[in-house]
């Protein structure tokens, strides 16, 4: 009963339009930024290196290189503050958590792209547009 009530509360905060993606995928997160009164959308593009489970508490970490510096950002998967998540490519990886990317630079730090899914993703995005 205790669990039921907590779950009832938490279920209200679940996003219904969660995009499915996996670690290794390249994604573009359209994050809403508030500047004073105005709100604008800022994209954060990179590789998903970790997904954490947990109902509405689930998060994922996106890593990118910005002017030669590695930047990682953790997003709540059910946050109302992003507009959408675009999946750009599906990565071909053998790990669930890609922390080894932190130690790599340049060409070595790229994630191999799954070939067949790349075409699929392209077809999908063209349909959506």
């Amino acid at each position: 009963m205790r669990r039921d009530l907590i779950q009832h509360v938490e279920s209200k905060y679940l996003r219904q339009d969660v995009t499915s993606f996996r670690t290794g995928d390249s994604v573009r997160v359209h994050w809403k930024v508030k500047e004073g009164e105005k709100e604008r959308v800022q994209a954060f593009e990179g590789v998903v290196i970790r997904k954490k489970k947990g109902q509405h508490r689930a998060t994922f970490t996106v890593r990118k290189m910005s002017f030669g510096v590695g930047v990682e950002r953790i997003f709540p998967l059910h946050s109302p503050r992003y507009e959408k998540i675009e999946v750009l490519t599906h990565g071909d990886v053998n790990r669930n958590r890609l922390f080894y990317l932190r130690g790599l630079k340049g060409k070595a730090s790229r994630v191999a792209v799954q070939e067949d899914t790349e075409a699929k993703a392209a077809a999908k995005s063209s349909k959506g547009a």
């Binding site: 205790r2 009530l5 907590i6 209200k12 905060y13 809403k32 508490r57 059910h78 946050s79 109302p80």
Partner: peptide
């Protein structure tokens, strides 16, 4: 008291409740 969890507030931030 049922227990604690986290929810998103109007600003979209997670708050402990």
């Amino acid at each position: 008291k049922i227990g604690m969890t986290q929810v998103f507030n109007d600003e979209g931030n997670l708050v402990p409740v």
